[in-house]
Design a protein around this nucleic acid. Structure first.
Length: 599
RNA sequence: GGUCCGGUAGCUCAGUUGGAUAGAGCAUCAGCCUUCUAAGCUGAGGGUCAUUGGUUCGAAUCCAAUCCGGAUCACCA
């Protein structure tokens, strides 16, 4: 249990004993870290009890403080400042904490239990390469899955590939007409980019054809439907749905190129999936659920045969589930897929990492499943995140303002190289090691940049300003880690020393402020990790890791480890930095960010 | 118009179930390398927490209204 939780419990117990007969709600006990300008480690706020007990804050604080010192043995002293009881935790507590956890690889993790959670993320369309906006989704999904794993859950990482539909046919048609048989192999262009190029080509041709028809006097709305290339594309979609073998083999070939490209990108991004779902397999699902809903009377049919659900009682609209001709719409297949996922893995929870533009859709999806009495409904959680925008507004492929994911990775790695060379820090590395280092720094910076903001907030990315490698960045954390490793190398202490390494340690000297601040923060890691899981917010780990690195840097500046005042101090500080490095690695690992031992 | 989300320093963002004088980073300015890595440390300046009212010992945080920005409300996906 964290010290903060222990203090809360001890306070509850103390109040019961000191003031029997007065009912004090547990929720009124607040325990905070003491502000730096006051002496103490943790603070109990006295105001709520002042009113209930009708006592003066000073008197109450004296009684409470004395009781806590006497009964718990956790505190070496207390101080009352205008209604706040500031408690100082004994040095012994901190030393024991260190001895117990300094080399614990699973510190802050929760024991495994059998709660099953699926995290669906990435979920790309196969008509264009990944862009910067997708990266936020991918990093968020991966990090969330890892955080939930560390919280003891059984996690399935899933990817639902949107591999069919009119937009896919657009690339296919344009390729047929204009590619003259070009392939990724022949052109040397990455498969997803090649296909994306023909998606762009389609739009160019389409725009021209529409313009031509309009200039010939056709109404624009009609021209958009009548453009020859669009009609061809719709024809192709019908052929695809009919299972036409030529269309299917073209589709398979081009999607194959895209998957190869995606897999390269995923590998470079350091993310993985346990289960792939393909829309071509799932797009017909959901009809059965709708039929059952009709029978139950939860849904209704209009005269034209279309099927609807009425969500007006829930403050929403009426929603179409099946067209008049019996074909499904987007949400129909989502109903089916939700059930499929649930049945595949017996899920307790199903998380969808999807941008906030689909908030309404997800709300409707969950509501309909609930109305239909599907057991998968309750577990659905939409991890909604704000879109990544450019200073000029949203990225638009048609306007060529999309920041490509692969390009972005290249640029970040190039930036890492540039800055490392500029800082003159390339000595003592082989070329191979340098390449790996640039990758670690560049990718770390990219991930951290996209994960450090609260997911639900939209973020603006200015490519001109690029991404900084100073301040609130992964580089800062990586640097702190490298510094620690450097000291450990010098002192012949392994990254994960055995318990016996500091067995003879005893604590006679007072813990100094810079040491204490760092230990205090390390002690909070379990509750930070828990919050990240409960609030579905990996950015908490960014904030926390940055704080730890900051505290370490100050500590490092103030106190020498190798040349500590004496052996006892040296051992204490070595344990502190071993644990600091371990916690940083752990937190960053959950975000998919690597920490170098040298940089 | 309905619903949802956001508005905190010049910029990008933190701010736990309401707690002490609202914090970081970037940028600006001033210091700190003969020392375990200066990709660092220390300090300074910079605020009508969108606005107004309410709740109370106490509000950036909770409630109401208003203003601004965004998303969404398709027989699109």
């Amino acid at each position: 249990m964290t010290i903060a939780a222990q203090i809360k419990m001890a306070t509850e117990d103390a109040l019961k004993h000191l003031y029997p007969g007065v009912e004090i709600p547990v929720s009124s006990i607040t325990v905070n870290q003491t502000k730096p300008e006051f002496t103490g480690d943790y603070t109990v706020v006295l105001f709520p009890f002042v009113k209930l007990l009708r006592k003066k804050p000073d008197e109450l604080g004296q009684q409470l403080g004395s009781y806590l010192i006497e009964k718990t043995g956790l505190f070496s002293g207390f101080d009352i400042v205008s209604g706040f009881l500031n408690l100082t935790v004994t040095d012994k507590y901190w030393v024991n904490f260190l001895l117990n956890h300094f080399n614990d690889q699973h510190y802050a993790e929760k024991p495994k239990h059998d709660r099953r959670i699926m995290v669906e993320y990435s979920s790309p369309n196969t008509n264009k390469p990944l862009h910067f906006g997708h990266l936020r989704n991918i990093f968020l999904g991966f990090a969330m899955a890892e955080v939930l794993k560390a919280s003891g859950n059984q996690v399935v990482k899933a990817n639902l590939i949107n591999d069919r539909g009119i937009h896919i046919c657009k690339s296919m048609i344009a390729w047929q007409h204009y590619a003259q048989g070009d392939t990724p192999e022949r052109t040397g262009i990455k498969g997803d980019h090649l296909v994306g190029d023909y998606y762009v080509k389609f739009n160019d041709v389409y725009k021209q054809q529409v313009a031509k028809l309009v200039s010939e006097g056709m109404d624009e709305a009609i021209a958009e439907k009548e453009a020859p290339i669009m009609k061809e594309t719709q024809e192709m979609l019908r052929n695809w749905e009919a299972g036409d073998s030529d269309t299917r083999s073209l589709w398979e070939m081009m999607n194959g190129w895209v998957y190869k490209g995606f897999n390269e990108s995923y590998k470079r991004l350091g993310v993985d999936f346990d289960k792939m779902y393909y829309e071509s397999d799932t797009y017909l699902l959901g009809k059965k659920i709708v039929e059952q809903g009709l029978q139950k009377g939860v849904l209704y049919k209009k005269e034209d045969g279309s099927v609807w659900v009425d969500l007006e009682d829930e403050g929403l609209d009426q929603k179409l589930l099946l067209r008049g001709d019996g074909t499904s719409v987007y949400i129909t297949q989502d109903l089916g897929t939700a059930k499929l996922k649930y049945n595949d893995y017996k899920l307790d929870q199903s998380i969808y990492v999807i941008a906030d533009e689909q908030n309404y859709h997800m709300q409707v999806l969950k509501l309909i499943l609930k109305k239909l009495g599907e057991p998968c409904a309750d577990g659905i959680y939409h991890l909604s995140y704000g879109m990544v925008e450019l200073p000029t507004g949203r990225m638009k492929s048609r306007e060529g303002t999309v920041v490509d994911a692969d390009d972005m990775m290249d640029e970040m790695i190039a930036l890492a190289r540039e800055q490392t060379e500029q800082a003159g820090k390339t000595e003592g590395f082989s070329q191979e090691e340098l390449d790996k280092l640039y990758e670690t720094i560049g990718m770390g910076a990219l991930k951290f940049y996209l994960l450090r903001v609260d997911p639900k907030k939209k973020m603006i990315f200015d490519p001109k300003e690029s991404i900084d490698l100073h301040g609130f960045t992964a580089t800062f954390i990586q640097y702190a880690h490298a510094r620690i490793c450097s000291i450990l190398r010098k002192e012949n202490v392994p990254l994960m020393p055995p318990n016996t390494r500091f067995q003879t340690f005893c604590c006679n000297e007072a813990i100094l402020p810079a040491e204490k601040k760092l230990m205090l923060a390390l002690e909070q890691y379990p509750s930070i990790l828990e919050n990240a899981a409960v609030e579905y917010n990996p950015s908490l780990l960014c904030n926390y890791s940055f704080l730890i690195a900051q505290l370490f840097n100050s500590f490092y500046d103030e106190h020498s480890i190798s040349k500590a005042e004496n052996e006892e101090k040296k051992h204490l500080r070595l344990m502190i930095i071993v644990m600091t490095a371990q916690v940083l690695r752990h937190a960053m690992h959950l975000l998919g960010i690597r920490l170098p031992e040298k940089m």
